[in-house]
């Protein structure tokens, strides 16, 4: 396994956000998030705008990784591509995007599961086209030489 080193341009992030917004307008979608398997949130769309998205990113990555591991321990090949959770008032789908990313889609309970699965699959394909190999493009030089010194001073001022 390699460590998470995802680097996306501003344009790519904008396209990803537009992709999630488009998905949210196709049905009664509560929440959708693109994250990575190490628990980092990349972009999200939230109908209520008040969710604790960093915590959700950490939990959903743990959920998918745990499911992959259960599959492996049962003799599978860590190839789980979809988790479906049926809750009392919503349905949550978590799909794997490529090797290192995941897409969460939470819909109202009355949204047909077939539609949600198809919408998720199409969104995964769109996201892969946006992220592609360019995800590993080196970033612009934004971390200047004095960053470490200024960072150390900042945390000293907090604690």
């Amino acid at each position: 396994m390699t460590r998470s080193q995802l680097l996306l341009s501003v344009e790519q992030l904008g396209e990803l956000r537009a992709c999630l917004e488009g998905l949210s307008q196709q049905g009664d979608v509560r929440f959708t998030m693109l994250g990575d398997l190490s628990g980092q949130e990349i972009v999200s769309w939230d109908a209520r705008n008040d969710l604790d998205t960093p915590s959700i990113a950490a939990l959903i990555a743990g959920d998918l990784m745990a499911t992959l591991e259960i599959g492996r321990m049962l003799g599978g090949k860590r190839t789980c591509n979809l988790i479906i959770q049926e809750h009392e008032d919503m349905t949550i789908l978590v799909g794997r995007v490529g090797e290192g990313l995941l897409l969460l889609l939470a819909t109202a309970k009355d949204v047909p599961l077939g539609w949600a699965r198809l919408a998720l699959k199409r969104s995964v394909d769109r996201i892969l086209a946006i992220v592609g190999t360019a995800a590993m493009t080196p970033p612009p030089s934004a971390v200047s030489d004095d960053f470490e010194m200024n960072f150390a001073a900042q945390i000293e001022s907090i604690w």
């Binding site: 460590r3 998470s4 080193q5 995802l6 680097l7 996306l8 341009s9 501003v10 992030l13 904008g14 990575d36 190490s38 980092q40 990349i42 970033p139 612009p140 934004a142």
Partner: peptide
Amino acid sequence: MFINWGLG
């Protein structure tokens, strides 16, 4: 590590 250049 994940760097979101859009949000800095």
